[in-house]
Design a protein around this nucleic acid. Structure first.
Length: 618
RNA sequence: CGGGGAGUAGCGCAGCUUGGUUAGCGCACCUGCUUUGGGAGCAGGAGGUCGCGGGUUCGAAUCCCGCCUCCCCGACCA
């Protein structure tokens, strides 16, 4: 049999009863049937960028025909995209299995009840996809599966001898994101690998966590994905220790810091500044009230201090960092109650709302309104000082870690147009506690070594944390220990965004010409371009080469399209991004083909006979 | 949810201000011929409820009202 291009073929696998579809190409060996042919591959590359894609990976994945948008926040995987996806999934699965995790699979469509028990039916709010079945029962599309994993283990296990247990699944998750964006990076439907460890005690949990951390390092290394492991906040999940794997990419939504000197790295939300060392204050003069008209802001206050000769410092001019700014807000508790909170920070610092929320969770900071001022007459807007704050005054007062015992401050005197100078922390006032929620700036001090911090953005590709007993307690997951006592199991929870990884890898590897896949996850190892007229020697030679390559266990994508000019084929080869491009063209007359490295752009003419060896040893 | 931008053929866009032949251009697609190492040429085609609903008008892609969707920034996000 031959097809219209004169290629030898073998009958379709589905047999004569399935007359439609192109015949499978002939191949000699087991492997050869897998040659991907661009002439029949279900793909269409676009010359122009889609208008609705901004982020480079999104743009190129659509342009190269890997994915298509099918729903708000939902994408269809085309054959090439699905191959990449499956390769990513395969690497993750292999590393999970190798690390000793066992794969299970839950439904994505779940009843309300377990999520009611954990409290997340309400806590998750609008992000949860809810629906009713025909009987009117509440159901949900699972955003994550902690509840089900916990219940499953409770269902089957009841002895310490069964632990530790490590299980995982790779499952589609659903979240009604307010704003899906950047293609696969934030969708409303996405695939996640989530795994859980179950241990009898904290030492076991720590061991499980460390093993998992190692497995993630191996996984992301194999995926060819650059990443930084950063300290993270555990958020609503509770738990003591939590780290994120961030791919450092501008398209990312997370902001993190890295130290120039040491290996400190943390999500900006999770940075914890060290508490400043106490300063001796035995010889400090008494605090002095100043008449400071028209100084409702830090800037106006500093100007006034520097304008008055009687207040001049001997060492240097006054700066904003010498002032203590007291920021008021109301904190709404989960029960609905609003309580006032004041936070004292050096005047040159601003509060970071995200960091603040992370620290106040589950409380929610709200602005301090005019009505709130009216309800607290002792608080004078623009002139608030520690004297009117603190639990004794009904306003909880937390200060920045830089406000060390013995440090001296200019701050509000709680009267219009008055400030107080030389107020000594620990002598003249005491806060109710510390809070570290100021904006982290590029160049700030590293909390670990004092070096300079650098800020960057990243995509959260993995998150590991020690969940602890929150879910085990909620669902009564206990086992009997060696003494026959009921003990609550402690859990770890670990996630990798599988579909997100595809976009992150694309984003991390692409260049001006197109996608540029790492070998481990590329749809094919070699892209063979036939640059010759139909009927020319190039066609049969390239066909033979493709089969040879397959036999040598290389995965081949063959551009056997007829009537497509070489320029188009080259551009498509670069756009599609296989690691190696082999051009069978005019050099063939001399027995040569051109081998190109997609990433470096390096090209060399090699004898046809050497190609297989060259490509398979790359 | 707040702010900004945009919905016209598979993709990218023009037309709208000032209503009026059969809604246009490039790419992609189909047929034929030519071409074949960097997104080919010529000729001929197919493809559109102009986001949806209502209104104004003799007449609406164009004007008015309502809604929906998409993109960006922010808020939100185990």
């Amino acid at each position: 049999m031959t097809n219209q291009n004169g290629q030898a073929t073998i009958p379709s696998r589905t047999g004569p009863s399935a007359p439609r579809g192109p015949p499978l190409p002939t191949t000699t060996a087991l492997y050869g049937a897998c040659v991907l042919r661009l002439s029949t591959l279900f793909v269409r590359t676009l010359r122009e960028d889609p208008a609705d894609a901004e982020v480079p990976s999104h743009r190129l994945l659509v342009r190269a025909g890997y994915i298509r948008r099918a729903a708000p926040g939902g994408f269809t995987w085309l054959p090439l995209g699905w191959m990449v996806y499956r390769n990513v999934e395969r690497v993750i699965r292999e590393e999970m299995d190798r690390a000793g995790f066992q794969e299970v699979h839950f439904p994505a469509l779940l009843p309300r009840e377990p999520y009611e028990t954990s409290g997340r039916w309400t806590e998750y709010g609008d992000s949860l996809f809810r629906l009713k079945d025909r009987r009117g029962n509440d159901m949900l599309m699972a955003p994550t599966h902690e509840e089900l994993f916990t219940l499953l283990v409770k269902d089957l296990y009841s002895s310490y001898k069964d632990l530790p247990l490590w299980i995982y699944q790779i499952q589609t998750k659903y979240r009604d994101e307010a704003r899906p964006r950047a293609g696969l990076l934030r969708g409303r439907e996405f695939v996640m690998k989530d795994s859980y460890s179950f241990d009898i005690d904290d030492a076991g949990l720590d061991e499980s966590y460390q093993q998992h951390r190692k497995a993630y390092i191996r996984t992301f290394d194999r995926l060819g994905l650059p990443y930084v492991i950063v300290g993270a906040v555990s958020g609503a999940m509770g738990g003591s220790h939590s780290e994120e794997f961030l791919a450092p990419l501008d398209a990312g939504e997370d902001e993190f810091v890295r130290c120039e000197n040491c290996d400190y790295a943390a999500n900006t939300e999770a940075v914890q500044m060290p508490v400043a060392a106490p300063v001796p204050y035995d010889d400090a003069p008494a605090a002095k009230v100043l008449d400071t008209p028209d100084t409702p802001t830090i800037a106006t206050l500093v100007d006034l201090l520097n304008a008055r000769d009687d207040l001049a410092r001997s060492d240097r001019p006054w700066g904003a960092a010498d002032t203590l700014k007291n920021v008021l807000m109301m904190v709404r508790q989960p029960d609905g109650e609003r309580r006032p909170l004041a936070i004292g920070v050096p005047g040159d610092r601003e509060l970071d709302l995200k960091r603040l929320e992370a620290q106040l969770h589950p409380g929610e900071p709200q602005p301090f309104t005019e009505e709130d001022f009216a309800a607290h007459p002792s608080l004078v807007k623009g002139y608030i000082g520690p004297g009117a704050l603190g639990e004794a005054n009904g306003v909880r007062y937390l200060v920045d870690p830089r406000v060390a015992d013995g440090s001296r401050w200019v701050t509000g005197a709680n009267a219009k147009s008055a400030h107080v100078a030389g107020l000594v922390a620990g002598r003249d006032f005491n806060a109710d506690g510390m809070i570290d929620a100021t904006v982290i700036a590029d160049g700030d001090q590293c909390p670990a070594c004092g070096g300079r911090l650098r800020i960057a953005r990243g995509v959260e590709i993995g998150h590991i944390f020690q969940l602890g007993r929150k879910y085990a307690e909620a669902f009564g997951l206990t086992v009997l220990d060696a003494d026959g006592k009921q003990v609550t199991v402690t859990m770890g929870s670990y996630g990798i965004g599988v579909s997100r990884c595809v976009a992150a890898i694309a984003e991390a590897t692409l260049d001006d010409l197109g996608l540029c896949w790492p070998a481990a996850i590329a749809p094919a190892d070699v892209h063979v371009v036939i640059a010759g007229k139909p009927g020319s020697d190039q066609f049969p030679a390239a066909e033979a080469l493709a089969v040879e390559l397959e036999a040598a266990r290389a995965r081949v994508l063959l551009d056997d399209r007829v009537g497509v000019s070489p320029g188009v084929k080259f551009a498509d080869a670069e756009l599609l991004g296989m690691p190696t491009i082999v051009v069978v063209g005019r050099g063939l007359a001399d027995g040569l083909v051109e081998v190109r490295d997609r990433r470096s752009g390096e090209r060399s003419d090699v004898p046809l006979d050497d190609v297989v060896a060259l490509v398979t040893t790359r």
